[in-house]
């Protein structure tokens, strides 16, 4: 008797990689709270374009800020390259986002409303406005055309750079996925650090060392914040943060920390004098930043597939008395009243 092949189906995707569990089960192995270990939540449907966008969006936002500041400081060499990086990031971002849509031709439906309750809606408008203003600033920086529009674009792009580089953290935090939602206070700082490191690394690699001082500082500072904020996030998440210690998210996170740290050290120590060290450091920090975004992305999928991570913190909130939960055991005029968990939930799973 043969089981249906699951390797390529959506069912298999439900609970992480198909190798982790038996072919007949869609549940999460070792789960204690739900029968058959089935997840409570759905995994996201987002594909590889989204972590790439996290990177390019961060790159665009932080590069715009860096370029604008370099302009003000009379460092056109850095400013011009910063605007080019920002333009590349702002150009790639919508391509990734549209490619990920289930109906790419309907991208423009994003622009029929502005909803403050939807970080994706807010972010779409930030990205659109950033794209236009970055393009204006880049044209002025490279050709000198449209000087007044370019100056305005430069200021607007710099003002929107912060939100552009960090709103994606708000986007994933505003979901029911425990590892994202419970990290809502730290994730924006992880993404901000990662954005600064990405922009700094690209500018370091591309700008003559003499003019690249700010870029090196941005790389090293961003890398420190990225690694430290990630560390803090994992610590505060406690058991809900377990996806960061196993599977793809764990491996990517380790690679991110190693590469980001090594790259930042190379740039801090030798980046000014050695071209090779600057290039290698920039490549490592860029790869580290991409891995960090990918680690966060993957952790969300792993978290959704673990029913205990959804149920246990909710059950603990009820036990602590923080909330009554959604269950009521009495009629308004009734007598029976207990909101305590029944140990039978665990017991009847053998």
């Amino acid at each position: 008797m043969s089981r249906p092949e699951l390797g390529t189906t959506r069912l298999a995707r439900r609970a992480g990689s198909p190798q982790q569990r038996g072919p007949a089960s869609v549940g999460h192995e070792g789960a204690k709270t739900t029968p058959y270990g089935r997840p409570v939540l759905k995994e996201p449907v987002w594909t590889w374009e989204i972590p790439c966008y996290f990177y390019t969006g961060g790159l665009a936002g932080a590069s715009a800020i860096l370029a604008h500041l370099a302009e003000g400081q009379g460092n056109p060499q850095l400013a011009r390259r910063g605007w080019a990086a920002a333009l590349a990031g702002a150009g790639a971002s919508p391509a990734f986002l549209i490619a990920d849509l289930g109906k790419p031709a309907r991208f423009f439906n994003m622009l029929r409303v502005l909803k403050v309750t939807s970080p994706m809606s807010v972010g779409t408008w930030i990205l659109s406005a950033s794209g236009v203003s970055i393009a204006l600033a880049a044209v002025r920086a490279w050709t000198g055309l449209f000087p007044r529009a370019g100056r305005a674009g430069s200021a607007v792009a710099a003002a929107l750079g912060g939100p552009l580089g960090t709103y994606t953290a708000a986007l994933v935090a505003d979901t029911a996925i425990p590892v994202w939602h419970e990290a809502r206070h730290e994730l924006p700082f992880v993404f901000a650090g990662s954005a600064a490191a990405s922009a700094g690394a690209l500018a370091t690699a591309w700008t003559p060392a003499k003019h690249a001082g700010p870029a090196r500082w941005a790389t090293v500072g961003g890398a420190v914040v990225e690694v430290a904020a990630t560390q803090l996030m994992e610590h505060r998440l406690g058991s809900v943060g377990e996806p960061y210690h196993e599977g793809p998210a764990g491996r990517l996170g380790m690679a991110a920390k190693a590469m980001t740290t090594a790259g930042a050290a190379a740039i801090a120590l030798r980046g000014r004098r050695s071209r090779a060290a600057a290039l290698a450091g920039a490549a490592l920090v860029t790869a580290g930043s991409l891995c960090e975004r990918w680690s966060v992305f993957k952790a969300g999928f792993q978290s959704a597939a673990r029913p205990d991570d959804t149920v246990v913190p909710q059950r603990e909130r009820i036990e602590r008395g923080d909330t009554r939960g959604a269950v009521r055991r009495t009629s308004p005029n009734g007598r029976v009243d207990t909101d305590k968990a029944s140990p039978a939930i665990v017991a009847h799973r053998d």
């Binding site: 996201p44 289930g102 309907r106 996925i177």
Partner: peptide
């Protein structure tokens, strides 16, 4: 209207 952005899926 839905363009398949998928945001509602992990939000529920």
């Amino acid at each position: 209207i839905c363009n398949g952005c998928g945001y509602c899926v992990p939000a529920c």
